[in-house]
Nucleic acid binder design. Structure first.
Length: 693
DNA sequence: CACGCTTATATTTTT
DNA sequence: TATAAGCGTG
């Protein structure tokens, strides 16, 4: 007979059984945070008779959400099987803040004054929209040189919104060289917001802003919040003020709130997150209880020693030291600090070590290379490919990968919302002989921003404006435009999948004529049509897809087949919450890790430290930190310029006795190899740092 | 005006 | 590498 509580340790059981309205759990790395949280959810359902769908589980990534929901349901299933429980099983509601916000906004669109078919734009769409505005500004004033590029502009906008800071302040921080353009940038932001409203689309930030607004609504807010009795939040150290507001509103009628997190792993300040929210939980949620999880089940003692040593040098936080689980019987070897001559030496060294560990029985699947920035693994990837070591890479921003997917999704959005000018702009340019200029005139003739002489654009009056809008297109483009129009217009009584399929058929020929590798792309489109079987609207399919972050890419070694053994390369950010038997942290050199981008203030350095801590604590039994003594200045090195590297400032004297130092040198590297960096350099750096304000 | 070509240039982290 | 901007051709 399965006893849920028996599967938890004393501390975790305390979390599961806790009987107060507000609970904060401070859970160190590897202490079974997920176990405790899913244990609590399962306990609430099976012992307290809470209906599963009245429990809301909030996370920051889809992966975490899926994992939590499925683990909870497995637990519930095991308990209920023993209790001979019968009947249909309700589901736990779980998702990222953004996807749950999206769901709520769809459900309550009408009372919130949102168009039913509102679109959701992902950051690349948002950047495109900003680019349109940016271009119009470039025309207006010839003096606009060095206006930030679209992605920087979007960055500035998001930062201002997330931190509730004025644009001019953000510009000084993010793009100091463009300070003189701050007023223009403010105008661009204002125009961006106006444009989004006009087009009937929301960006990622809007989802949260609107959700908060919806929850503040005296009637609607109450109703949304009353859907849940318990709200459980994972990775609470990553919330920002906006998300705290949302949680307050979700639980201000007596609903229970449980948050779990570790201030030592707060690594998202660039998204306006702050560990202060978990540290000062009681000021947001008075009379909260606090429990701590301190037994680490993941790593061996020597690995925890290094992590603790790193933490003990932090200016703030890291209040709890991790203690190793007495049940951990993995062989405890010291982590290695591997000095390599340069980046290629580092790649060699990693490859050899990976294979060596595999010989010792640690499969590739159980090994990961962690990097501070996605491009840090570029050279390693080449070497892995050369040696035929398969891998997948997670993290790094790769949106453009699936242009064809975005094309069909644009058509999906238009079917629900013909005011979505951004989608028209995309779709029109697929037609032969239609570029930005013709697309723009066609859009202007659709009279989306109706001046009052025409009714607002909607599917019913689209055909009437079509011929006029597309009259500048060539004959071929005109006829494919007509095909598109027919596909976009809904047919009475038709199933959603049928409509999706009609759109796919209309878009497919355009994909074929616009991309070389059309065959592979076309199968992706079929998958999208399938995705619409379970949806309520096409714009919802598009939105869900936008919210699904681009996961891994593995183009170099070829896509690993299921069950095949492959290694993982991941950014530290994307690795959070994961663990491997063997972890390789590369580029542990000052400037790379910690990143020199983050060193302008003390808070930045502290966050880099936490990031390093996250990296180290992913390892179960083998940890290797690599320090190349030289690395290239330019990422896409045309030249061979490289600089001498200081080992990461986190590898201090306190760490040294806790690691085995290894020097990995090829014969021709001798001479440069054995120069051991001296501490004065660190002091000098610190002195100089005062200058970079 | 579209489109293909060349050149300069700037690169963290992600929902 | 990938983006932006500029140029020449059709």
């Amino acid at each position: 007979m399965f006893d849920l509580l028996d599967s938890l340790d004393t501390q975790q059981r305390g979390v599961a059984l806790h009987d107060g309205q507000r609970l904060r759990v401070l859970a160190g790395a590897g202490t079974g945070k997920t176990t405790a949280l899913t244990g609590r959810a399962a306990y609430l359902v099976t012992a307290r008779n809470i209906t599963p769908d009245r429990i809301l589980l909030l996370t920051f990534t889809r992966r975490a959400a899926r994992q939590m929901v499925s683990r909870t349901e497995t637990l519930i299933g095991r308990v209920q099987k023993d209790q001979a429980h019968s009947g249909a099983r309700a589901r736990i509601v779980g998702g990222t803040f953004h996807s749950v916000a999206h769901g709520a906004l769809r459900r309550y669109a009408a009372p919130l004054g949102l168009a039913e078919g509102f679109g959701v734009i992902d950051p690349s769409d948002a950047a495109d929209l900003i680019d349109v505005i940016r271009n119009s500004f470039l025309q207006d004033k010839a003096l606009q040189r060095r206006l930030p590029r679209k992605s920087t502009l979007l960055d500035i906008y998001c930062r201002a919104v997330d931190t509730a800071t004025t644009v001019s302040e953000v510009v000084v921080e993010v793009a100091p060289w463009a300070t003189k353009h701050a007023p223009a940038i403010s105008d661009i932001c204002r125009e961006y917001v106006r444009k989004k409203r006009e087009l009937g689309v929301l960006d990622f930030d809007d989802l949260l802003l609107y959700w908060r607004e919806a929850l503040s609504h005296p009637v609607v807010g109450r109703q949304i919040a009353s859907d849940y009795d318990h709200v459980l939040v994972d990775e609470y150290q990553d919330v920002n003020t906006l998300q705290v507001d949302v949680l307050k509103l979700l639980t201000n009628q007596g609903q229970c709130l449980t948050v779990v997190g570790d201030d030592a792993q707060a690594i998202y300040s660039f998204r306006a997150s702050s560990p202060d929210h978990i540290l000062n939980f009681n000021s947001d949620f008075p009379e909260a209880s606090t429990l701590a999880l301190t037994t680490n089940y993941r790593s061996t003692q020597p690995i925890l020693d290094v992590a603790n040593a790193l933490g003990s040098e932090a200016e703030v936080g890291f209040s709890t030291k991790l203690t190793v689980s007495p049940s951990n019987c993995a062989p405890a070897t010291k982590p290695r600090l591997v000095r390599c001559a340069d980046e290629d030496g580092q790649s060699d060294s990693v490859c050899e070590r990976v294979l060596e560990l595999r010989e010792q029985g640690i499969a590739l699947r159980e090994q990961a290379v962690l990097v501070r920035a996605a491009h840090h693994s570029d050279r390693l990837e080449i070497e892995l490919t050369r040696r035929g070591i398969p891998f997948v890479k997670y993290g790094g921003l790769k949106y453009l990968e699936a242009a064809h997917v975005k094309d069909l999704l644009a058509a999906f959005r238009l079917a629900d919302n013909p005011r979505d000018e951004l989608s028209w702009f995309r779709i029109f340019q697929l037609l032969s002989g239609v570029g930005p200029a013709k697309a723009r005139t066609a859009i202007s003739r659709l009279e989306i921003a109706s001046d009052g002489s025409l009714p607002p654009l909607e599917p019913s009056n689209l055909p009437a404006r079509w011929a006029q809008a597309t009259k500048d297109f060539g004959p071929a483009a005109q006829s494919s435009a007509d095909v598109l129009l027919a596909a976009i217009l809904p047919q009475a009584g038709e199933r959603l999948v049928t409509h999706a399929e009609r759109l796919r058929l209309a878009v497919a020929p355009l994909i074929e004529s616009n991309y070389q590798d059309a065959a592979a792309r076309l199968t992706d489109l079929e998958a999208l049509v399938q995705a619409s079987t379970s949806a309520a609207r096409l714009s919802e399919v598009a939105a869900e897809h936008a919210l699904e972050p681009p996961s891994g890419t593995s183009d170099l070694a070829g896509p690993p087949v299921i069950d095949e053994d492959y290694m993982v390369i991941s950014t530290v950010h994307s690795a959070k919450g994961l663990e491997w038997d063997a972890v390789h942290v590369i580029h542990a050199a000052d400037g790379n890790f910690p990143s020199d981008m983050a060193l302008s203030d003390a808070a930045g350095l502290e966050e880099e430290r936490r990031l390093f801590y996250v990296a180290l604590t992913r390892a179960r039994r083998s940890l290797d930190v690599y320090v190349p003594l030289r690395f290239h200045v330019n990422r896409h090195a045309r030249d061979d310029r490289n600089v001498w590297a200081q080992p990461s400032r986190f590898l201090t004297g306190a760490v040294a006795p806790l690691v085995d130092e290894v020097t990995h040198m090829r014969p021709d590297d001798f001479g440069v190899a054995v120069i051991k960096p001296i501490d004065t350099a660190i002091t000098v750096d610190a002195q100089l740092n005062g200058l970079w304000q």
